[in-house]
Amino acid sequence: MLVLPVFLADLASLVFPETCLACSESLMRGEEHICTQCRAQLPYTDYHKLPANQNPLARRFWGKVPLTHTLSYLRFLRRGRVQHLLHQLKYQGQREVGQTLGRWYGAELTSWGLHNEFDLIVPVPLHPRKLAKRGFNQSDTFAEGLATGLAVPWHATTLRRTEHTDSQTRKNRAQRWQNVATVFEVAEPHTVVGKHVLVVDDVLTTGATLEACAVALLAAGCRAVSIATIACAEH
């Protein structure tokens, strides 16, 4: 009874082959959005395996905001697979990139015992104007995947962006902080009081946006805040 559906699926894959979102080569049966070769060659940070005082990402926040865990799955390298994946996610509407990488990273963090650390996962929010234009929040797709991999609840609207800000791309750290310092608020404070919240974003550069989110969450009564991103840019 199952032979025909499998045959039809195989036929469809020949006529309309799915391609890897990192390298654009055809996927083999059993591969999910990213081919096995690309997955093996992604530039993983492995920061979750390091003590906090040896984590180079954590140092970016020392003296600015207290974070329990400072995590990033991949290194952002220009013109590399990670940049291509993030472009597919943000500008081509390929939400599966965020969801898949989130599940994989969540499973990796779970294997290191971090699944018991967090009570809630929240994404860095987009302003409603930008959300309406893009149609989805790329950070929320990663949060959804992490929630699955870690078996931890996530909530898309816990944080709210109150102002539409300029792009951070061409700003230095001081300018980035000034751009976002007061634009985040906790929309539902009762959901975070006494909890360890994991805030997630797509890319960490200077960390100003995540720092501003962490400050808002701690002011609302969080017990602790950690951060995680799909990728981080090297200093």
Rank of each mutant, 00 (worst) to 15 (best):
Q94R: 15
V193K: 15
V186E: 03
T158R: 04
H127G: 06
R161V: 01
L89P: 04
F184Y: 04
R29I: 03
G135S: 05
S139A: 15
V193E: 14
R223N: 10
D10L: 15
C222R: 12
W104L: 14
E185C: 07
T141F: 03
R223H: 09
G207Y: 00
T191V: 05
G207N: 00
V3K: 11
R95T: 14
G149V: 06
T165H: 03
R103H: 12
L74N: 02
R173S: 13
Q99F: 11
H164W: 08
G207C: 02
P189T: 02
D202R: 00
V180W: 00
A9N: 07
A40C: 08
A181M: 12
I121P: 05
L21N: 04
A231V: 00
D140R: 06
L4S: 13
H69G: 10
P128M: 05
M1R: 14
L67A: 09
R173C: 04
K90C: 08
G145F: 04
E108C: 07
L2V: 05
V97C: 07
T169F: 10
A132I: 02
D202P: 00
H235P: 09
Q168R: 03
T169D: 12
F16V: 08
Q88P: 01
A12M: 12
G194L: 05
Q178S: 13
Q175H: 07
V186A: 04
L210H: 01
F118K: 09
E185Q: 08
H164G: 03
V200L: 07
S167Q: 11
N172F: 01
N55C: 06
F61C: 03
P125M: 06
D10F: 14
D119P: 05
S226H: 07
F61T: 01
F136R: 02
V124M: 04
T206H: 01
S72K: 00
G63S: 07
H196W: 11
Q94C: 10
A147Y: 07
N179S: 05
V82Y: 02
H69A: 11
T162N: 06
L71R: 05
G113S: 05
V225S: 09
F61I: 01
V203I: 11
S139R: 02
L146P: 02
Q94S: 13
E31H: 07
H164C: 07
T209L: 02
N172Y: 02
G135I: 03
V192D: 10
A212E: 07
Q92M: 12
R39H: 09
Q94F: 06
D10I: 10
L50H: 06
G221W: 04
C222L: 14
E108Y: 11
G149I: 04
R129N: 06
Q178N: 12
D202I: 01
G63R: 08
T68M: 15
A219M: 14
P51D: 13
V192R: 11
V183A: 01
L77P: 10
H127K: 06
D166C: 13
Y44C: 03
L101N: 06
L109R: 12
R170M: 08
S139T: 03
V97I: 07
P5T: 10
W62A: 08
P17A: 06
D46M: 12
P153N: 08
V197Y: 09
Q88R: 10
R173V: 08
G149L: 00
A58F: 09
A132E: 09
L42Q: 05
T157N: 14
A219D: 15
T206W: 00
R95L: 13
G102A: 04
L4P: 11
Q88M: 08
M28T: 05
D46R: 15
D46T: 11
T148R: 13
